[in-house]
Computed example of a mutant assay.
Amino acid sequence: MAEPNSKPNTTVFAPWTDPDAVPLIRFRNVTKRFGDFTAIDDLTLDIYEREFFALLGPSGCGKTTMMRMLAGFENPTEGRIEIGGQDMANVPPNLRAVNMMFQSYALFPHLSVYDNIAFGLKRSDMPKEQIPDRVNEMLRLTRLERFAKRKPHQISGGQRQRVALARSLAKAPKLLLLDEPLGALDKKLREETQFELMDIQEKTGTTFVIVTHDQEEAMTVASRVAVMDAGVIKQVDTPPAIYETPNSVYVADFIGDVNLIEGTAAKTGEHAYEITYAEGVDPIKVTECEHEIAEGAKVTFAIRPEKIVVTQDPPEDRANAMQGKIIDIGYLGNLSTYHVELPGGQMVKATMTNASRISRRDYTWEDTVWLGFRSSAGVVLSE
């Protein structure tokens, strides 16, 4: 029994930081070729039990090929894939503890919601008398009890998505693969369903691997994200780390909005640099740089628009201040975005929260303004 006023267990779920943790899924030097085309190039990756793992990247980057190899629909050209310590070579899809949920949902239109969920269980080795309890458990989990007797065409897109999810989870797979599962939903419903997915994944403890090209979706649902390009994983990390400390220009540019300023680095102290990016202007001061950069190296300074403030006068509380002219303004309701051109021609985007109702704009087109940001606000990238 816990002692009075004792703190609850707040252990962070991060098995990838534990050197003794055994991954559920292992990719080891996996390459997949289709003729002369290399879809996956020498990929090594670990995914852990109970993770909600996202494969994120543009169309054609190889993420769906990875998923199809996990499901058993494709075999690696080279390398090894393990699930639960077992080599998946020559293991057919129906003998893997894996289920896959497709973007189309693939529901049987002539069957009720109940019978769609029960379909796979009736063809499994589950005793018949246990099937109703399992189906009802899935209906409760996905909040579909009221719709059990309806056909797929009689329910909404979001409800059909939950039926497909319930059917996929009914056989209690170790691993559930989700291929763009929310792509058919409108934006608002997609955002609501993202949180439902997270809640269901946490309740079941099933490992989810989701394929998506939607950055916000991956950043919302995933415990870790793998950013892919041309069959190669560029970075694997938690959503905050991917966003705040990208390891390359590609990742910084792919995830969210970012300003990329090319320049030359000069060391000014421990973990501190100045980035010269144009003649006749002050260099960008950077601290808390996590990696060593060679003197005079060509680098890219990456800073998110929300890290930059727009002011009429030079900001005294910011290490960096740049003067420029407003070229464009975007009003998004909760945010206003300013495109500011610096004297050297560099365009910088700054995003400001509209904390109060706007009766008139503080700044307008062609205004001269100052942009300010802290020395720790951006990252220096050499790749």
Score class of each variant (00 low, 15 high):
residue 53 F to D: 04
residue 37 F to L: 06
residue 40 I to P: 05
residue 35 G to C: 06
residue 45 L to G: 09
residue 53 F to V: 08
residue 21 A to D: 00
residue 58 P to V: 12
residue 53 F to G: 04
residue 15 P to Q: 03
residue 55 L to W: 04
residue 42 D to S: 12
residue 54 A to I: 05
residue 71 A to G: 15
residue 16 W to I: 05
residue 50 R to V: 14
residue 65 T to Y: 02
residue 72 G to M: 10
residue 50 R to Q: 14
residue 18 D to M: 11
residue 65 T to F: 05
residue 66 M to C: 14
residue 47 I to A: 07
residue 55 L to E: 03
residue 59 S to R: 02
residue 12 V to D: 14
residue 57 G to K: 04
residue 21 A to E: 01
residue 50 R to F: 14
residue 51 E to T: 13
residue 30 V to R: 04
residue 51 E to I: 12
residue 33 R to N: 11
residue 43 L to N: 07
residue 23 P to Y: 04
residue 70 L to S: 07
residue 63 K to T: 05
residue 22 V to K: 04
residue 48 Y to F: 10
residue 41 D to C: 01
residue 31 T to L: 00
residue 26 R to K: 15
residue 32 K to G: 02
residue 41 D to M: 01
residue 19 P to G: 08
residue 25 I to G: 05
residue 28 R to E: 14
residue 53 F to R: 04
residue 46 D to N: 15
residue 42 D to Y: 03
residue 54 A to L: 09
residue 26 R to N: 14
residue 53 F to H: 10
residue 28 R to S: 13
residue 69 M to C: 11
residue 24 L to V: 00
residue 60 G to M: 06
residue 31 T to M: 02
residue 41 D to T: 01
residue 30 V to L: 04
residue 55 L to F: 11
residue 27 F to M: 10
residue 58 P to W: 12
residue 12 V to F: 15
residue 68 R to D: 06
residue 48 Y to L: 07
residue 50 R to S: 15
residue 31 T to N: 09
residue 40 I to S: 09
residue 35 G to N: 06
residue 49 E to N: 09
residue 68 R to E: 11
residue 70 L to Q: 06
residue 69 M to N: 11
residue 12 V to K: 15
residue 41 D to E: 03
residue 28 R to Y: 14
residue 58 P to A: 15
residue 54 A to C: 11
residue 54 A to Q: 03
residue 66 M to A: 11
residue 71 A to Q: 13
residue 30 V to F: 01
residue 19 P to E: 11
residue 58 P to K: 13
residue 18 D to T: 08
residue 62 G to K: 03
residue 60 G to P: 05
residue 18 D to Q: 11
residue 20 D to K: 12
residue 68 R to V: 08
residue 69 M to P: 12
residue 70 L to M: 12
residue 68 R to G: 06
residue 61 C to P: 08
residue 47 I to Y: 10
residue 71 A to M: 14
residue 68 R to I: 11
residue 69 M to T: 06
residue 23 P to C: 08
residue 59 S to L: 06
residue 56 L to N: 02
residue 56 L to W: 06
residue 40 I to R: 01
residue 27 F to S: 03
residue 72 G to A: 11
residue 41 D to S: 00
residue 63 K to Q: 00
residue 59 S to C: 01
residue 45 L to K: 12
residue 67 M to G: 04
residue 52 F to Q: 12
residue 17 T to R: 15
residue 57 G to F: 10
residue 26 R to S: 15
residue 30 V to P: 00
residue 71 A to F: 10
residue 42 D to F: 04
residue 23 P to V: 01
residue 13 F to M: 02
residue 19 P to Q: 13
residue 16 W to Q: 12
residue 48 Y to Q: 09
residue 34 F to E: 01
residue 18 D to W: 12
residue 49 E to A: 08
residue 61 C to E: 01
residue 51 E to V: 13
residue 12 V to T: 15
residue 34 F to C: 06
residue 21 A to K: 09
residue 69 M to V: 10
residue 46 D to R: 08
residue 68 R to A: 07
residue 20 D to T: 13
residue 39 A to K: 02
residue 12 V to M: 12
residue 65 T to E: 03
residue 25 I to Y: 00
residue 14 A to N: 14
residue 22 V to S: 07
residue 42 D to E: 10
residue 21 A to N: 05
residue 66 M to Y: 08
residue 65 T to D: 01
residue 42 D to Q: 09
residue 60 G to R: 07
residue 53 F to P: 04
residue 69 M to Q: 06
residue 43 L to E: 06
residue 14 A to Y: 13
residue 59 S to V: 10
residue 67 M to I: 02
residue 22 V to R: 09
